Simulated assay, not measured.
Amino acid sequence: MRFTKDHEWVQVEGDVASVGITAYAAEQLGDVVFVELPEVGKQVKAGENLAVVESVKAASDIYAPVAGVVVEINTALGAAPETVGESPETVGWFAKLKLADVSEVEKLMDKAAYEAFLQTL
């Protein structure tokens, strides 16, 4: 699993990456009440808006940590958006992207680097 400074995570299997938000981000959001997911087939570049999460505190954009094409979305979040807060780094994923460049993932932080980054906040 790799992480961004915007608190998104990426888990790669082959040339497909699952994308979600970290436990830290979920904790900051509070209770999630709505998730707006991208459409399957949408092309995104790293840093572009991928999804929107609305919580009782605010609406937050979720950015694509890597470039790719959306090949699957987590439709279960429509009926159960609270899953993002309850299990952000497992079943609370937002979308799966077919990676444009698998090596792009290597530019992201590993778990140790992300945890060190959190200590600076």
Score class of each variant (00 low, 15 high):
residue 47 G to C: 14
residue 79 A to T: 14
residue 120 T to D: 12
residue 13 E to M: 11
residue 40 V to R: 15
residue 39 E to P: 07
residue 99 L to G: 01
residue 90 T to E: 10
residue 120 T to V: 14
residue 73 I to Y: 05
residue 79 A to L: 12
residue 103 S to M: 04
residue 42 K to V: 02
residue 62 I to F: 06
residue 117 F to T: 05
residue 41 G to W: 06
residue 110 D to H: 08
residue 113 A to Y: 08
residue 27 E to N: 12
residue 110 D to W: 09
residue 121 L to R: 15
residue 89 E to G: 04
residue 92 G to T: 01
residue 48 E to Q: 15
residue 91 V to L: 07
residue 72 E to F: 10
residue 16 V to F: 05
residue 102 V to E: 09
residue 33 V to R: 12
residue 114 Y to T: 12
residue 119 Q to C: 05
residue 22 T to S: 01
residue 71 V to E: 03
residue 10 V to M: 02
residue 61 D to R: 06
residue 81 P to D: 10
residue 95 A to T: 15
residue 14 G to N: 14
residue 21 I to T: 05
residue 97 L to D: 02
residue 22 T to P: 00
residue 85 G to Q: 03
residue 57 K to F: 13
residue 37 L to T: 15
residue 101 D to P: 03
residue 69 V to E: 08
residue 63 Y to F: 11
residue 44 V to R: 00
residue 86 E to L: 14
residue 10 V to W: 00
residue 7 H to I: 01
residue 115 E to K: 12
residue 20 G to V: 07
residue 21 I to R: 04
residue 80 A to M: 15
residue 109 M to W: 01
residue 41 G to S: 11
residue 93 W to N: 03
residue 38 P to Q: 09
residue 66 V to H: 07
residue 7 H to R: 01
residue 54 E to A: 01
residue 94 F to S: 00
residue 97 L to F: 04
residue 84 V to F: 05
residue 83 T to N: 07
residue 87 S to C: 09
residue 120 T to Y: 11
residue 83 T to A: 06
residue 92 G to E: 04
residue 12 V to M: 09
residue 47 G to E: 10
residue 5 K to N: 15
residue 112 A to V: 05
residue 58 A to W: 11
residue 29 L to Q: 00
residue 3 F to R: 04
residue 119 Q to T: 14
residue 31 D to R: 09
residue 34 F to S: 10
residue 51 A to N: 13
residue 29 L to K: 02
residue 33 V to E: 10
residue 90 T to G: 13
residue 24 Y to A: 03
residue 120 T to G: 09
residue 121 L to D: 09
residue 33 V to P: 06
residue 72 E to G: 04
residue 109 M to Q: 06
residue 32 V to F: 02
residue 59 A to C: 11
residue 2 R to S: 08
residue 11 Q to C: 09
residue 106 E to F: 08
residue 89 E to K: 07
residue 35 V to H: 08
residue 14 G to P: 02
residue 105 V to L: 09
residue 78 G to T: 09
residue 87 S to I: 10
residue 118 L to K: 11
residue 111 K to T: 08
residue 33 V to H: 09
residue 76 A to E: 15
residue 13 E to Y: 10
residue 106 E to V: 11
residue 92 G to K: 01
residue 87 S to G: 10
residue 88 P to A: 06
residue 77 L to D: 01
residue 52 V to A: 15
residue 50 L to Q: 08
residue 8 E to T: 11
residue 60 S to D: 08
residue 9 W to A: 01
residue 72 E to V: 04
residue 77 L to M: 13
residue 21 I to G: 05
residue 61 D to A: 08
residue 110 D to M: 12
residue 49 N to R: 14
residue 68 G to P: 06
residue 5 K to R: 15
residue 20 G to A: 02
residue 113 A to C: 08
residue 72 E to R: 15
residue 13 E to L: 12
residue 42 K to I: 02
residue 32 V to S: 08
residue 5 K to I: 05
residue 3 F to N: 01
residue 43 Q to R: 14
residue 118 L to T: 13
residue 73 I to T: 14
residue 29 L to M: 13
residue 54 E to L: 11
residue 15 D to Y: 07
residue 41 G to M: 13
residue 52 V to K: 13
residue 98 K to S: 12
residue 24 Y to D: 06
residue 35 V to M: 10
residue 88 P to S: 10
residue 32 V to L: 12
residue 20 G to Y: 03
residue 4 T to G: 05
residue 60 S to H: 10
residue 115 E to G: 02
residue 78 G to P: 02
residue 38 P to V: 13
residue 97 L to G: 00
